[in-house]
Computed example of a mutant assay.
Amino acid sequence: MEIYDSGAGRLVYELPSDWVLGEGRYVVKLVRSKKKDGFDDSGLLQNWREILLSRYGPIQDHVVPVVGSGENGLWLVMPYAEQYNLDWDHDAIDEKVDMIKSMDGVEPVARGGFSGSLDLNWTENWGAYNGEYRLLDYGGIAITTSIPQYENELIFSDPSNRP
């Protein structure tokens, strides 16, 4: 498998078709390993945010869903979303950004790049999924509400929501 994409805390691979049951393309996001003391905290935080936010009703129609994950959050799987060969409609994306910013229970917090703008505003964090623009990298959105976790999962509490 070749790296499809990567960030500071995670590596993204497209799953080979012979690993997938049924039709479709999927990617796996793996938390980067640190050489000395475990796993990258930022990658783990991003994975947990995506795992839980994909279950949160108000935002579900705006994100590419997580369809599988490890109970420790070290990996997650989501459908592939096309990022290339698209006719970008920046007005449509801006409208979705505004909708997400106004939602209760979530708060875009991650900033970066030269402009210091929210990750939510970056075109590379969006893709085409099921015929519409959806966020495919949304680990920069903090969870400010309670989202139920499965019994076997480690309990996650978003650090940006702690006193």
Rank of each mutant, 00 (worst) to 15 (best):
V67T: 13
G43M: 00
M1H: 13
R49L: 05
S54L: 03
W19R: 05
P16T: 04
E151Q: 10
D40A: 06
L30K: 12
I93L: 04
S42I: 11
G43P: 09
V77T: 01
N85Q: 09
G139P: 13
G131A: 06
I59R: 14
L44S: 02
S17P: 12
S33D: 05
S160E: 12
N161V: 04
Y80S: 08
T123A: 15
L135D: 05
G22R: 08
Q60P: 02
E82C: 06
V97T: 09
F114D: 13
Y129W: 03
R111Q: 10
S17N: 11
D158G: 03
K35V: 05
V106K: 11
G73D: 02
R134C: 15
I3P: 08
R49N: 12
R32T: 11
P163H: 08
R162W: 07
Y56M: 12
G140R: 09
T144R: 15
S17Q: 14
I100E: 10
P159R: 02
K34R: 13
V12W: 00
D98P: 08
L76T: 01
N130A: 12
K29Y: 00
L76V: 00
Y133C: 10
S117W: 01
A92K: 15
H90N: 11
M103L: 15
L154F: 07
P79S: 03
T123I: 15
N161A: 15
G9S: 06
N125I: 01
G139L: 03
I141F: 03
N152E: 13
Q149I: 10
D104I: 03
W19F: 10
K35G: 09
I143E: 14
P163F: 03
L136G: 09
D104P: 08
N161C: 13
E132G: 15
L154Q: 07
S115I: 01
D91Y: 05
L118I: 10
L76Y: 00
N72L: 12
G22F: 01
Q60F: 00
S102G: 14
Y56P: 07
P79I: 01
G140A: 09
R134F: 04
M78I: 00
N47H: 02
K101P: 13
A92C: 03
Q83M: 11
E50P: 05
D61R: 14
G140L: 07
W75L: 07
G105C: 06
G38T: 06
I147E: 06
H90F: 09
V67F: 06
N47K: 04
S160I: 05
S117P: 02
K36P: 00
I3L: 13
L30C: 11
D137H: 06
W48E: 02
Q46E: 13
L136N: 14
N85F: 11
S6V: 00
E50K: 00
S33R: 15
G24C: 04
F156V: 09
E153H: 08
P16L: 10
V106R: 11
R162S: 13
F114G: 07
R162N: 10
W126D: 07
